[in-house]
Measured scan of single mutants.
Amino acid sequence: KTVHVDGVEYRFNNPEEADKFVKRLVKEKNGNVEVRGDTYHVE
C-alpha cells in the first residue's frame, strides 16, 4: 500500500499499518481520502 500526503509518498508492507496511518492523518487534517488502486491520497 502507498499513501500520498502533500506530495510525499509513504510505503507500507502491512496494509493494517497503512490504514491506521491514513485514519490518523484524516483526523489531524480533517481531510479526505481518495483511494486509487493500491494508493491512498490524503488531502
Results as ranks from 00 to 15, higher is better:
31 G>M: 14
14 N>E: 03
29 K>C: 15
20 K>H: 11
9 E>D: 06
21 F>A: 02
21 F>S: 01
34 E>K: 08
1 K>F: 15
30 N>I: 05
15 P>R: 10
27 K>E: 13
40 Y>F: 11
19 D>H: 07
43 E>N: 12
32 N>M: 13
30 N>M: 09
7 G>F: 00
38 D>K: 02
38 D>Q: 05
15 P>W: 13
16 E>F: 06
16 E>N: 04
8 V>D: 02
22 V>H: 03
23 K>I: 08
9 E>S: 07
32 N>R: 15
21 F>V: 02
26 V>W: 11
27 K>G: 10
30 N>P: 06
37 G>I: 12
27 K>M: 11
1 K>H: 13
35 V>Y: 11
5 V>A: 03
19 D>I: 14
38 D>M: 02
4 H>P: 00
21 F>R: 00
18 A>E: 03
32 N>D: 05
15 P>F: 09
40 Y>M: 08
30 N>F: 09
2 T>A: 04
18 A>L: 09
20 K>M: 13
4 H>W: 15
36 R>M: 10
32 N>C: 15
33 V>G: 05
39 T>F: 07
35 V>T: 06
6 D>A: 04
16 E>K: 04
15 P>L: 10
4 H>C: 15
6 D>S: 02
32 N>I: 14
43 E>W: 15
17 E>G: 00
8 V>I: 09
16 E>H: 05
33 V>L: 10
10 Y>I: 06
17 E>W: 01
12 F>P: 01
2 T>G: 01
23 K>G: 07
20 K>V: 09
26 V>K: 07
17 E>Q: 03
5 V>H: 06
24 R>C: 15
17 E>V: 01
36 R>D: 11
3 V>I: 09
25 L>W: 06
40 Y>E: 08
38 D>H: 04
33 V>E: 07
12 F>Q: 01
6 D>Y: 04
20 K>I: 11
32 N>Y: 13
19 D>V: 08
39 T>D: 11
1 K>N: 10
14 N>V: 02
34 E>G: 06
21 F>K: 00
42 V>S: 06
20 K>Y: 09
9 E>T: 11
2 T>V: 14
40 Y>S: 09
3 V>R: 00
22 V>W: 05
19 D>P: 02
37 G>S: 06
29 K>E: 09
31 G>L: 10
42 V>T: 09
24 R>W: 15
15 P>I: 11
14 N>L: 04
1 K>R: 11
15 P>S: 12
32 N>L: 11
30 N>Q: 08
8 V>A: 02
41 H>L: 12
35 V>E: 06
22 V>E: 05
32 N>K: 15
16 E>G: 04
17 E>F: 00
42 V>G: 10
32 N>V: 14
14 N>P: 00
35 V>I: 13
1 K>E: 05
37 G>F: 12
39 T>P: 07
36 R>V: 12
40 Y>I: 15
5 V>T: 00
2 T>C: 13
25 L>H: 05
42 V>E: 08
5 V>P: 00
13 N>C: 13
6 D>E: 03
8 V>Q: 07
33 V>K: 04
39 T>Q: 11
36 R>F: 11
40 Y>D: 10
15 P>H: 10
10 Y>E: 01
30 N>K: 08
12 F>V: 01
11 R>H: 14
16 E>D: 10
40 Y>N: 05
38 D>C: 08
9 E>K: 04
30 N>Y: 11
23 K>V: 08
10 Y>V: 03
11 R>N: 07
30 N>V: 08
18 A>V: 03
13 N>D: 13
6 D>K: 03
3 V>W: 03
42 V>M: 07
26 V>Q: 12
27 K>L: 11
37 G>N: 07
19 D>E: 13
4 H>Q: 08
2 T>D: 01
9 E>R: 05
36 R>Q: 08
6 D>C: 12
19 D>C: 15
27 K>W: 08
36 R>G: 08
13 N>M: 09
17 E>T: 03
2 T>R: 04
22 V>F: 07
8 V>L: 07
34 E>W: 11
26 V>H: 08
8 V>P: 00
2 T>N: 04
22 V>D: 06
7 G>K: 00
14 N>Q: 03
12 F>L: 00
7 G>N: 03
41 H>W: 15
22 V>S: 02
40 Y>Q: 09
28 E>A: 04
2 T>W: 05
39 T>K: 07
39 T>H: 13
43 E>T: 15
38 D>N: 10
39 T>Y: 07
35 V>R: 05
13 N>T: 11
15 P>Q: 14
11 R>V: 12
9 E>W: 10
21 F>Q: 02
35 V>D: 05
